[in-house]
Nucleic acid binder design. Structure first.
Lengths: 240, 240
DNA sequence: GATAATAAATGTATAAAATACATTTATTAT
DNA sequence: ATAATAAATGTATTTTATACATTTATTATC
């Protein structure tokens, strides 16, 4: 690591102060029409019994993304889930335990019954975004910021789909958008707009869990989306 | 800082490894129809003579935003300029000098002649985004990421205006959008769309620097924008 | 003081997209 | 066979986007 070429610069590096760096994960799930966030009750002081997001310090030999993926895997047992850096929380006084910078990372999980159980065996709980209890440190702010980001991004990118199973119905997607944006959409217009994008692949299966008639299952055509995205297309299901 | 209540947690904090944290600033300016980024030639080893963004280590007693503002002030002599966190660069191998995490922050400056001179007295230079020379470390990637963010954000928020003087003309704004998105707009439709938002305040002054007839100067009505923004309005001047 | 030169400003017709709105359909349970 | 339930569908109207060419205000020059 310490090449003699870097001698001059080395003084600069040596003079600088090192700081604790952590990641905190804001993990969203869509549970039967309700948007939830994963949290756990701290079992040690300080703040024992308080709700907290899941986090970890960043080690010397890992990037912040790697640290966040490690945390996500430890708590959910899942890999390859949607995750994106939110922002840095670096107020000098944010953590009374020590000066510590935290990188917020938000993640989106499709909450099948299996996944829901997995997370709960790890001692975490899914809390509804509405009526969220108080969280430790600046974790409340992190959730608020992540929610805002999720809304802004879901407005113009198909990331909302990460909260649904790979195979989903149109009424499910509408319900997700209605919960996320706290709006009601006309079923005819929502469906028309969605199908006009020509990015849903209709399957021969129906989901009959919520009606006798059953609703057709669809998959999203990511290949087609990525091709068009590079040509300036943007995914949007409503205007105002 | 070290309250006995935090004793248990303290072990955890003490066990964690501290890391060098820096900020690097991607400062954009719009110079006579051309989008530029501020860089300087390193005067010390390593990478002496190579182009680099402007950065600094984050000190124990400042947040990352404060560090970035400090750097921006040192290099431009300006305060209150638009700045937003971009993302964290934390690859273990990104800096051969030492393990160091850097937070990219991008900023937008209105390049009056005064401001242009100010930055240049500090030894920095404005480089055109097109044909950008190689930059040290991952700074090239930072500029690419910042440009993408700028485009995505300027698409739906009026941040492009931060690159123009407070008083600007419609042809200036069109030229900015054309440069930023590498598109050409019809002057009639651009103006019509822009004015239909009802967010420009026309002044009684004209800017005659680029035509004999002169173009009317306008200011952006931020109060009106902020009010409507909270009601779901989004600023957008073109569709595809 | 007439003329040339220059970029700014303007209007209309057509096409596309968004919105508002009510009925029929497929299926299961009784 | 009937009732119950949510899924699926069509049309008319309004709004927004697009395509496209001429006139206007001003300065510099002859």
């Amino acid at each position: 690591m310490h090449n003699p070429l870097y001698q001059l610069a080395q003084n600069k590096y040596d003079a600088a102060q090192k700081i604790l760096v952590a990641v905190d994960c804001i993990i969203f799930g869509f549970d039967d029409g309700v948007l939830k966030v994963l949290a756990f009750k701290r079992k040690v002081e300080p703040f024992c019994g308080s709700w907290s997001l899941i986090g970890s310090f960043v080690a010397e030999n890992e990037s912040t993304d790697e640290a966040a993926k490690r945390v996500l895997f430890e708590i959910t047992g899942l890999k390859n889930i949607f995750m994106e850096e939110l922002k840095t929380y670096s107020s000098v006084t944010r953590d009374p335990g020590a000066r510590c910078i935290s990188i917020g990372q938000y993640a989106l999980i499709s909450l099948s019954k299996k996944n829901k159980k997995l997370t709960e065996t790890h001692g975490a709980e899914w809390l509804s975004i509405i009526d969220l209890p108080e969280l430790v440190l600046d974790h409340q702010q992190m959730v608020a910021d992540a929610l805002e980001r999720l809304r802004n991004k879901a407005r113009f990118y198909p990331i909302g789909l990460e909260l649904l199973p790979k195979k989903f119905t149109i009424p499910q997607l509408q319900s997700l958008y209605e919960e996320l944006f706290q709006l009601l959409f006309d079923t005819r217009n929502f469906r028309k707009k969605l199908l006009s994008l020509n990015m849903l692949i209709q399957l021969d299966e129906k989901d009959k869990t919520s009606s006798k008639k059953g609703a057709y299952l669809y998959e999203f055509d990511y290949d087609k989306y990525n091709t068009l995205k590079n040509k300036g297309f943007n995914f949007s299901l409503f205007k105002s």
